[in-house]
Amino acid sequence: MRQRPVFLITMLCFGFAFFYIPILSMMVYSFNGSRLATVWGGFSVKWYVSLLSNRQILKAVMLSLQIAVTSATFATILGTMAGIAIARFKTFRGRTLFSGLITAPLVMPEVITGIASLMLFILMAEYIGWPAQRGVTTVTLAHITFSMVFVSTIVHSRLVQTDDSIEEAAMDLGSRPWQVMKDITLPVISPAIVSGWLLAFTISLDDVVITNFTTGPGTTTLPILIWSKVKLGVTPDVNALATIMVCIVGIGITIAGIILTRAEKRRDLDAQLAYQANK
């Protein structure tokens, strides 16, 4: 008999309390009627109302979404290429440097990536003249660079888990390499590509440090706006904003979870079918 792991269950409860008490507290205080963010002053939704009429915040949200969609899309294309390159091409000149280049940004402290990118962009503006000003373009370029390596990691780990003879089989059946990529490799890794895009999107949407360095005047993304607000302390409208964001992410994750559970059930059913087919 397996014993009930009492200690482990206790730790799980403690851990989840640690995870969620701050978030729940923040959500509760977003309905605080008082101007003082930490003193309860009755239930109110006025911060949500003021948030929704705040043009500055809405503008920042739109800008963040625009940058996130663009950079996630480019990062997915480049990251998928990089993941395929490192997983499928075993020997090419400069492979060691390449594999270093696709792992280093993952662990490089953001401050360093930030000042390094900033210096690059200033020098580019100085000597090439493009991008002339720091703003959406420079932020997007920086986001593409550091989120593409997350995509390539996901794609790479998916590829090493799939049988590479299916690609040879397609070639054997008359497909040229490009058709193999289109018919076989890309469909097979499509779940990885989708989750890569989502991750790149989230990373871009969430980034403060690198954006802070590479952005220019007038280009205020949502995290930068929040950053400038919270540096001044706790305010009730940020509580409301945070609550909305947590809810959106929560709904997204729940949907993803339901899809995953369904997929798992389908796999069980398929295994059953395969077993019955035997008879």
Binding site: P22, I23, S25, M26, Y29, A37, T38, T202, L205, D206, V208, P223, I226, W227, V230, G233, V234, V238, N239, A242, M245, V246, V249, G252, I253
Partner: peptide, 13 residues
């Protein structure tokens, strides 16, 4: 998946 900044902020509260 929620904002890193907001997680820090939650503790400020």
């Amino acid at each position: 998946w929620t904002s890193f900044l907001l997680r820090v902020y939650a503790w400020m509260g």
